[in-house]
């Protein structure tokens, strides 16, 4: 009996952890290129969630194309954000502080524009996938969770392929070491940063659609990204495998704490974990903390 409970929580944790991974990977990718913490990442997620909701409810488009359309919207939102807000800062060679402030401003702007126009109401996705469970003996999962985890891993594998096997991916790897040097070697920096934001936006949008289906869609959905940020730091800021490992571990730990201790402690635990990681090993599990170089 206890074994079944433990296994069930493990599965629940992995299921939410795979959604965190989608957020954390995009966030980490941006960090590895531009070296700043993109607090506007939650906005991309919310844009994806709302786009998915309106496309599925308002237009009669089948589910999969609707999701693709929604995540493309989120990707475009990310590219636009970069173009309008970050590129001017980037070209002025401003301190990181300016990026952080601008990104937080965008996050607040998006959240409250949605509150003011669409409204603060919680909205439920139509039942696209039946909530029927898949019974696997000891554990059961909803069909949606299975599909979310599957899609998440599919996208992450495609991303891994893109980064390690293509020319543009190679440029991204180079830029993660030194953006300026990559530019000097003939990499089109603006296009590269645009691509990175497109990828990050698409991944965030996908997680938004899944979170919307799992829970509901509301303007403050973006705050969940704080957990993905913690997961990214836990795994090692700037490291993609680290972001995935950190997200899955965080998801599992959260599930266990919510199930066996108390669900109110869960969010407090995430914060304590952040402080503990920063105290003990700020580089996280797989990254290494690099001091600023002259």
């Amino acid at each position: 009996m206890i074994l079944s409970r433990v296994l069930q929580q493990l599965v629940n944790g992995l299921s939410i952890g795979s959604i965190y991974a989608l957020i954390a990977v995009g966030y980490s990718l941006i960090y590895s290129i531009l070296r700043f913490s993109n607090f506007a990442h939650g906005s991309f997620l919310v844009v994806g969630a709302y786009a998915g909701f309106f496309i599925v409810t308002a237009m009669s488009i089948p589910f999969i194309p609707a999701v693709l359309l929604a995540i493309l919207t989120a990707g475009l939102a990310a590219v636009t954000t970069e173009r309008v807000a970050y590129r001017p800062i980037r070209e002025r060679n401003s301190p990181t502080l300016y990026f952080i402030i601008a990104s937080m401003g965008i996050a607040i702007f998006c959240e409250h524009t949605i509150v003011a126009t669409i409204g603060p109401k919680f909205r439920t996705y139509p039942r696209v996938l039946a909530a029927t469970g898949v019974d696997l003996g000891l554990v059961s999962m909803s069909k949606m969770d299975v599909m979310a985890a599957f899609m998440a891993f599919l996208f992450l594998i495609v991303l891994q392929y893109f980064i390690t096997r293509t020319k543009q991916g190679c440029a991204i790897q180079a830029a993660s070491y030194d953006l300026q040097a990559a530019g000097l070697m003939g990499v089109n920096v603006n296009r590269l940063v645009g691509t990175v934001f497109l990828i990050a936006g698409i991944l965030a949008g996908l997680s938004g659609v899944f979170l919307g289906m799992k829970y509901t869609v509301y303007p403050q959905l973006g705050y969940l990204t704080i957990k993905a940020f913690v997961a990214a730091i836990f795994g090692g800021l700037g490291s993609l495998p680290g972001a995935i490992a950190g997200s899955l571990l965080l998801g599992v730990m959260e599930a266990f704490i919510a199930a066996f201790l108390s669900s109110q402690l869960r969010d407090l635990f995430v914060f304590s974990l952040l402080i503990a990681v920063l105290l003990v090993k700020p580089g996280g599990l797989m990254g290494k903390y690099v001091e600023e170089k002259v």
Partner: peptide, 21 residues
């Protein structure tokens, strides 16, 4: 204490988490 030695981003994230906590 855990973040003043690190680059600014860690502090900003920790501050955000602290507010929620």
């Amino acid at each position: 204490y855990p973040t003043v030695r690190l680059v600014g981003d860690y502090f900003a994230i920790a501050a955000l988490g602290f507010g929620e906590a």
